[in-house]
Design a protein around this nucleic acid. Structure first.
Length: 160
DNA sequence: GCCAACGTTGGC
DNA sequence: GCCAACGTTGGC
């Protein structure tokens, strides 16, 4: 199976890339996804070893801050069963989970953030969903070409 | 199955 | 905080 690439959004005020690094084994489960398309990507397509562009949203400088890796494939999102959780969904049950999550492990921080503003200026990235207006999906597939372009930008941005 | 109302996302 | 874009819900 060929390695796949993804972009995952998180609000740094809630859970930042640095927060992920600080977790035990620099790994955490990606809970709280309550969008069917994003769920389907996690449940059906994400595989161990896939690489993730970690995107910070709803913050002063939105953009991609580093790379993470999928380290566990989908399993039921227990927060949907917790009545005290803000992610509680009464329509989900333990024997028939509606929502799923994966485990994500911190891998490498970019030297400099690749801002949304920057992404919009790069010709090879014009088809990325994240640069398109009105695209709110929190988990998006990324091509290998796009991943490589972003990676190079992140690792050499200080030289530009 | 249509569609209006409502809630959420996320850049600005 | 505003608001455009989009997804979901629920009455019919």
């Amino acid at each position: 199976m060929t390695k796949q690439y993804w972009l995952m959004k998180s609000e740094p005020g809630t859970f930042s890339f640095t927060d992920l690094k600080a977790c035990a084994h620099s790994t955490d489960h990606w809970d709280g996804v309550r969008n069917y398309q994003a769920r389907n990507y996690m449940r059906d397509e994400m595989k161990v070893g896939d690489l993730v562009l970690f995107y910070h949203s709803s913050c002063p400088e939105p953009g991609i801050v580093g790379v993470a890796e999928i380290t566990r494939e989908s399993y039921p999102d227990h927060t949907a069963l917790d009545a005290d959780s803000k992610y509680f969904d009464p329509k989900s049950s333990s024997d028939n989970s509606r929502w799923f999550m994966v485990d994500v492990t911190w891998k490498e921080a970019f030297k400099d953030i690749v801002t949304l503003e920057k992404l919009k200026t790069v010709a090879g990235l014009k088809d990325m969903k994240v640069v398109q207006k009105g695209q709110r999906l929190s988990i998006q597939p990324v091509t290998a070409e796009e991943f490589n372009i972003v990676y190079k930008l992140g690792m050499s941005a200080s030289l530009l």
